[in-house]
Protein backbone atom coordinates (compact mmCIF):
# COMPACT_ATOMS: atom_id res chain seq x y z
CA UNK A 1 0.00 0.00 0.00
CA UNK A 2 1.58 3.30 -1.07
CA UNK A 3 1.92 6.02 1.55
CA UNK A 4 0.61 8.87 -0.58
CA UNK A 5 1.05 11.48 2.17
CA UNK A 6 4.77 10.73 2.14
CA UNK A 7 5.01 10.58 -1.66
CA UNK A 8 3.34 13.99 -2.03
CA UNK A 9 5.23 15.73 0.78
CA UNK A 10 8.62 14.37 -0.30
CA UNK A 11 8.25 15.05 -4.01
CA UNK A 12 5.92 18.00 -4.43
CA UNK A 13 8.92 20.35 -4.77
CA UNK A 14 10.47 18.24 -7.54
CA UNK A 15 7.18 18.24 -9.45
CA UNK A 16 6.64 21.94 -8.90
CA UNK A 17 10.09 22.88 -10.21
CA UNK A 18 9.79 20.55 -13.24
CA UNK A 19 6.42 22.05 -14.16
CA UNK A 20 7.72 25.56 -13.59
CA UNK A 21 10.71 25.05 -15.91
CA UNK A 22 8.36 24.21 -18.79
CA UNK A 23 5.25 26.23 -18.06
CA UNK A 24 6.91 29.22 -16.41
CA UNK A 25 5.04 31.32 -13.88
CA UNK A 26 1.57 30.41 -14.82
CA UNK A 27 -1.52 30.00 -12.72
CA UNK A 28 -2.31 26.74 -14.50
CA UNK A 29 0.90 25.17 -13.19
CA UNK A 30 -1.12 24.07 -10.16
CA UNK A 31 -3.36 21.94 -12.42
CA UNK A 32 -0.28 20.30 -13.93
CA UNK A 33 1.03 19.45 -10.47
CA UNK A 34 -2.27 17.87 -9.43
CA UNK A 35 -2.60 15.93 -12.67
CA UNK A 36 0.97 14.66 -12.31
CA UNK A 37 0.20 13.07 -8.95
CA UNK A 38 -3.15 11.69 -10.16
CA UNK A 39 -1.35 10.08 -13.08
CA UNK A 40 1.18 8.65 -10.61
CA UNK A 41 -1.72 6.97 -8.77
CA UNK A 42 -2.68 5.21 -12.00
CA UNK A 43 0.92 4.12 -12.68
CA UNK A 44 1.25 2.82 -9.11
CA UNK A 45 -1.88 0.69 -9.62
CA UNK A 46 -0.40 -0.88 -12.72
CA UNK A 47 3.08 -1.65 -11.44
CA UNK A 48 5.24 -1.07 -8.34
CA UNK A 49 7.16 2.22 -8.60
CA UNK A 50 10.90 1.84 -8.01
CA UNK A 51 12.07 5.39 -8.56
CA UNK A 52 9.54 8.02 -7.50
CA UNK A 53 11.61 11.13 -8.36
CA UNK A 54 12.34 9.90 -11.89
CA UNK A 55 8.74 8.85 -12.49
CA UNK A 56 7.32 12.12 -11.19
CA UNK A 57 9.77 14.20 -13.20
CA UNK A 58 8.75 12.31 -16.32
CA UNK A 59 5.02 12.61 -15.61
CA UNK A 60 5.36 16.31 -14.73
CA UNK A 61 7.31 16.95 -17.94
CA UNK A 62 4.68 15.19 -20.05
CA UNK A 63 1.82 16.97 -18.29
CA UNK A 64 3.47 20.40 -18.53
CA UNK A 65 4.30 19.93 -22.19
CA UNK A 66 0.72 18.85 -22.90
CA UNK A 67 -0.43 22.02 -21.20
CA UNK A 68 1.96 24.23 -23.21
CA UNK A 69 0.91 22.52 -26.44
CA UNK A 70 -2.79 22.84 -25.61
CA UNK A 71 -2.22 26.53 -24.91
CA UNK A 72 -0.57 26.90 -28.32
CA UNK A 73 -3.48 25.09 -29.96
CA UNK A 74 -5.99 27.35 -28.24
CA UNK A 75 -4.14 30.34 -29.59
CA UNK A 76 -3.82 28.67 -32.97
CA UNK A 77 -0.63 27.76 -34.76
CA UNK A 78 -0.31 31.27 -36.14
CA UNK A 79 -0.65 32.72 -32.67
CA UNK A 80 2.16 30.55 -31.33
CA UNK A 81 4.42 31.40 -34.24
CA UNK A 82 3.59 35.06 -33.82
CA UNK A 83 4.47 34.83 -30.14
CA UNK A 84 7.79 33.26 -31.02
CA UNK A 85 8.44 35.85 -33.74
CA UNK A 86 7.54 38.60 -31.34
CA UNK A 87 9.95 37.39 -28.67
CA UNK A 88 12.64 36.87 -31.30
CA UNK A 89 12.15 40.33 -32.73
CA UNK A 90 12.63 42.04 -29.41
CA UNK A 91 15.92 43.79 -28.69
CA UNK A 92 17.91 42.06 -25.99
CA UNK A 93 17.43 43.81 -22.68
CA UNK A 94 20.41 45.58 -21.13
CA UNK A 95 19.77 43.97 -17.79
CA UNK A 96 21.32 40.49 -17.65
CA UNK A 97 18.48 39.17 -15.50
CA UNK A 98 15.86 40.39 -17.90
CA UNK A 99 17.88 39.02 -20.80
CA UNK A 100 18.12 35.60 -19.15
CA UNK A 101 14.42 35.61 -18.46
CA UNK A 102 13.73 36.50 -22.07
CA UNK A 103 16.05 33.75 -23.28
CA UNK A 104 14.25 31.25 -21.04
CA UNK A 105 10.88 32.41 -22.36
CA UNK A 106 12.01 32.06 -25.96
CA UNK A 107 13.30 28.58 -25.37
CA UNK A 108 10.04 27.53 -23.64
CA UNK A 109 7.93 28.84 -26.50
CA UNK A 110 10.10 27.02 -29.03
CA UNK A 111 10.05 23.75 -27.04
CA UNK A 112 6.25 24.00 -27.00
CA UNK A 113 6.36 23.90 -30.81
CA UNK A 114 8.32 20.64 -30.96
CA UNK A 115 6.63 17.31 -31.71
CA UNK A 116 5.48 15.64 -28.47
CA UNK A 117 8.16 12.94 -28.15
CA UNK A 118 11.02 15.24 -29.18
CA UNK A 119 9.90 17.81 -26.61
CA UNK A 120 9.77 15.17 -23.88
CA UNK A 121 13.28 13.91 -24.65
CA UNK A 122 14.61 17.49 -24.84
CA UNK A 123 13.09 18.56 -21.51
CA UNK A 124 14.18 15.43 -19.64
CA UNK A 125 17.70 15.75 -21.02
CA UNK A 126 18.28 19.49 -20.68
CA UNK A 127 15.89 20.65 -17.96
CA UNK A 128 15.93 17.51 -15.81
CA UNK A 129 19.55 16.68 -16.65
CA UNK A 130 18.78 12.98 -17.08
CA UNK A 131 21.35 10.82 -18.90
CA UNK A 132 20.10 9.40 -22.20
CA UNK A 133 19.83 5.90 -20.73
CA UNK A 134 17.47 7.14 -18.00
CA UNK A 135 15.47 9.21 -20.49
CA UNK A 136 15.10 6.09 -22.62
CA UNK A 137 14.06 4.00 -19.62
CA UNK A 138 11.50 6.55 -18.48
CA UNK A 139 9.96 6.90 -21.92
CA UNK A 140 10.12 3.18 -22.67
CA UNK A 141 12.29 3.61 -25.76
CA UNK A 142 15.80 2.52 -26.66
CA UNK A 143 18.75 4.81 -25.85
CA UNK A 144 19.45 5.02 -29.58
CA UNK A 145 15.92 6.25 -30.22
CA UNK A 146 16.27 8.77 -27.39
CA UNK A 147 19.49 10.14 -28.86
CA UNK A 148 17.90 10.34 -32.30
CA UNK A 149 14.88 12.22 -30.96
CA UNK A 150 17.15 14.63 -29.11
CA UNK A 151 19.17 15.30 -32.23
CA UNK A 152 15.98 16.02 -34.20
CA UNK A 153 14.68 18.26 -31.42
CA UNK A 154 17.91 20.29 -31.54
CA UNK A 155 17.69 20.62 -35.32
CA UNK A 156 14.13 21.91 -35.09
CA UNK A 157 14.99 24.30 -32.29
CA UNK A 158 17.87 25.60 -34.35
CA UNK A 159 15.41 26.39 -37.15
CA UNK A 160 12.88 27.97 -34.78
CA UNK A 161 15.44 30.10 -32.97
CA UNK A 162 17.79 30.89 -35.85
CA UNK A 163 16.80 34.55 -36.31
CA UNK A 164 17.27 35.23 -32.64
CA UNK A 165 20.55 33.47 -31.94
CA UNK A 166 22.10 34.97 -35.04
CA UNK A 167 21.26 38.41 -33.69
CA UNK A 168 22.69 37.42 -30.30
CA UNK A 169 25.86 35.99 -31.83
CA UNK A 170 26.43 39.17 -33.87
CA UNK A 171 25.92 41.19 -30.71
CA UNK A 172 28.40 38.91 -28.89
CA UNK A 173 30.98 39.31 -31.63
CA UNK A 174 30.61 43.10 -31.51
CA UNK A 175 31.15 43.15 -27.74
Amino acid sequence: MTDWDAVVSQHVEIVRCTVHRIVGNHADAWDCIQETFLEAVKVDRREPVRNWPALLRRLATVRALDFVRARSRRRGQNGAEAELAQTIGREPSPSSNAEASELAGRLRTAVGQLPRRQAQVFCLTYFEQMPSTEVAEQLGISPTAARMLLSRARQRLQRFLEPFYEAVSQEDERT
Binding site: H20, R21, A100, L103, R106, R154, Y165
Partner: peptide, 21 residues
Amino acid sequence: DDFFDRFLDRAVDAVLREPPP
Protein backbone atom coordinates in the same frame (compact mmCIF):
# COMPACT_ATOMS: atom_id res chain seq x y z
CA ASP B 1 26.29 25.13 -35.25
CA ASP B 2 28.81 26.25 -32.70
CA PHE B 3 26.89 29.51 -32.18
CA PHE B 4 23.69 27.57 -31.79
CA ASP B 5 25.26 25.22 -29.22
CA ARG B 6 26.41 28.18 -27.18
CA PHE B 7 23.08 29.89 -27.52
CA LEU B 8 21.23 26.75 -26.45
CA ASP B 9 23.52 26.33 -23.43
CA ARG B 10 22.78 29.91 -22.42
CA ALA B 11 19.05 29.51 -22.89
CA VAL B 12 18.94 26.23 -20.92
CA ASP B 13 21.11 27.81 -18.26
CA ALA B 14 18.66 30.70 -18.10
CA VAL B 15 15.79 28.27 -17.49
CA LEU B 16 17.70 26.33 -14.84
CA ARG B 17 18.90 29.44 -13.03
CA GLU B 18 15.51 31.04 -12.83
CA PRO B 19 14.50 31.75 -9.25
CA PRO B 20 12.39 28.85 -8.03
CA PRO B 21 8.67 29.47 -7.78
